[in-house]
């Protein structure tokens, strides 16, 4: 494991902790898209179907458990916890699942390494992760007042993807034969989706003003 991969994972973990902090201590999920959170839960469930029969390391195993547990608990909080649920911007969170899930499923059935259930589900999870942020970005654009924790959450998620790109560049040059087209292209698309957000996030940080995305 290289430093970019570790930094990427830690950034990913931090983003989830920031979100849990907001939900658990402030009891608010204002500005957070439940659709995106449910898509992430689906991403982890379909990607880690091999959690009990493909062991790579204790680190990977524990991280998989953490990602599964945290994503499911976030969805639970937003749906079932009374105070948290009240703060959910339901009317603004209108992105339709089927626009994301169906194309990803079709693409995974067509472009994959092997046409088996687990392999297609794994590929589906990569495509789905790439675009799962879309409902969140749409919601951000509609939110007049983006609070700091929400802004940080999305920034950390984007940073995690950027660090994974660096990890792949590093691995390409240090590990002979390290080529993973499906992972790379899905990862690149995912990172590009954050470009616009990054631009406004850094601008607001530099000028020390509240983050607001143009409509």
């Amino acid at each position: 494991m290289n430093v970019f991969r570790l930094a990427g994972d830690m950034t990913h973990l931090s983003s989830i902790l920031v979100l849990l902090l907001k939900i658990h201590t402030i009891k608010s999920c204002a500005g957070i898209s439940l659709k995106t959170q449910e898509l992430y839960a689906l991403v982890f469930i379909t990607r880690y179907l091999d959690i009990f029969d493909r062991f790579t390391s204790i680190y990977n195993f524990l991280m998989k458990l953490i990602f599964l547990g945290s994503s499911l608990s976030i969805v639970w909080y937003m749906r079932r916890h009374k105070a948290v649920h009240r703060s959910y911007d339901k009317d603004q969170d209108t992105f339709r699942y089927q626009f994301i899930v169906l194309p990803c499923l079709l693409l995974a059935l067509v472009i994959n390494h092997k046409l088996t259930f687990k392999e297609v589900m794994w590929t589906f999870s990569l495509y789905l992760e790439a675009v799962a942020i879309l409902p969140q970005l749409v919601l951000l654009q509609r939110t007049r007042n983006i609070d700091n924790l929400t802004g940080q959450y999305v920034f950390l998620l984007g940073a995690y993807r950027a660090l994974y790109l660096l990890n792949w560049v590093y691995r390409y040059f240090t590990e002979p034969g390290f080529v993973r087209w499906i992972t790379w292209i899905a990862g690149l698309v995912q990172t590009l989706l954050y470009a616009d957000f990054f631009y406004y996030y850094i601008l607001s940080w530099k000028n020390n003003v509240k983050l607001e995305l143009p409509a």
Binding site: H12, D50, R54, T56
Partner: peptide, 10 residues
């Protein structure tokens, strides 16, 4: 297929 055995990332 080599690609199938390299799921060492999260």
């Amino acid at each position: 297929d080599e690609q199938l055995d390299v799921k060492d990332e999260l």
